[in-house]
């Protein structure tokens, strides 16, 4: 399993998001290399198709493909929706867990 974690330094949720990702990997009993990329310029953001910080891709697939498609590409802080409909700068656990299980060949929750 390959995981990419992309972030923009000015959005402070990247630290807690990375902690959340690593904690979920541990809880799910999964081992994966997490490749961390700091996005620093608009050009880099375009080249990486970066829909805001933080962005997590598991085996090349965004944990929230619909959200990524709806987000502008650039040096933004990314908006996530929680299962109960709230906005958050942190990717919800459920999205990360689902993406990890899908990549691990398990389905659903």
């Amino acid at each position: 399993m390959e995981i990419e974690f992309l972030y923009f330094e000015e959005c402070p949720s990247h630290g807690p998001a990375l902690e959340r990702l690593r904690e979920l990997l541990r809880r799910e009993g999964l081992k994966a290399d997490v490749r961390i990329t700091r996005v620093e310029t608009d050009e880099e953001a375009r080249r990486l198709d970066f829909p805001g910080s933080p962005t997590i891709r598991v085996d090349g697939r965004d944990i929230d493909p619909e959200g990524a498609a709806a987000s502008p590409v650039g040096l933004f802080c990314r908006v996530y929706r929680t299962p109960d409909g709230r906005f958050s700068p942190l990717p919800p656990e459920e999205l990360i867990r689902k993406a990890l299980r899908r990549a691990d060949g398990r389905t659903g929750d």
Binding site: S13, R78, R86, F87, S88, P89
Partner: peptide, 10 residues
């Protein structure tokens, strides 16, 4: 308008 922290606290 656009910031997720603003939206989270709004």
């Amino acid at each position: 308008n656009h910031c997720p922290y603003v939206l989270a606290w709004e």
